[in-house]
C-alpha cells in the first residue's frame, strides 16, 4: 500500500516536493518574523523614506 503511494509519487519529482517545502518554510518564517515585530517598529520602517532630512529646497512642491 505505502509502496504503491510512494511509487506513484515518484512521478512528482522529489525536486518539486523539496521546492514546495522550502517555499512554505520561507513563507512561514517571514510571516512569523514580520508579525512578531511591534507596531512602533513597523511605523518607523514605513516612514523611513519620508523622514527627510536636510533643508529641502523649494522644489518640494514641484508639481503638486
Amino acid at each position: 500500500m505505502f509502496k504503491y503511494i510512494l511509487e506513484s509519487a515518484g512521478d512528482i519529482n522529489w525536486m518539486a516536493i523539496f521546492a514546495l517545502l522550502t517555499f512554505f518554510t520561507v513563507f512561514g518564517v517571514s510571516l512569523y518574523v514580520i508579525f512578531r515585530r511591534d507596531k512602533d517598529f513597523i511605523d518607523h520602517m514605513a516612514n523611513l523614506p519620508l523622514e527627510e532630512e536636510a533643508p529641502q529646497p523649494n522644489g518640494r512642491a514641484a508639481v503638486n
Binding site: 529641502q56 529646497p57 523649494n58 522644489g59 518640494r60 512642491a61 514641484a62 508639481v63
Partner: peptide, 9 residues
Amino acid sequence: LPRIFDTKL
C-alpha cells in the same frame, strides 16, 4: 530632477 536642481518642473 527638479529636486536636485532646486527648482520646479
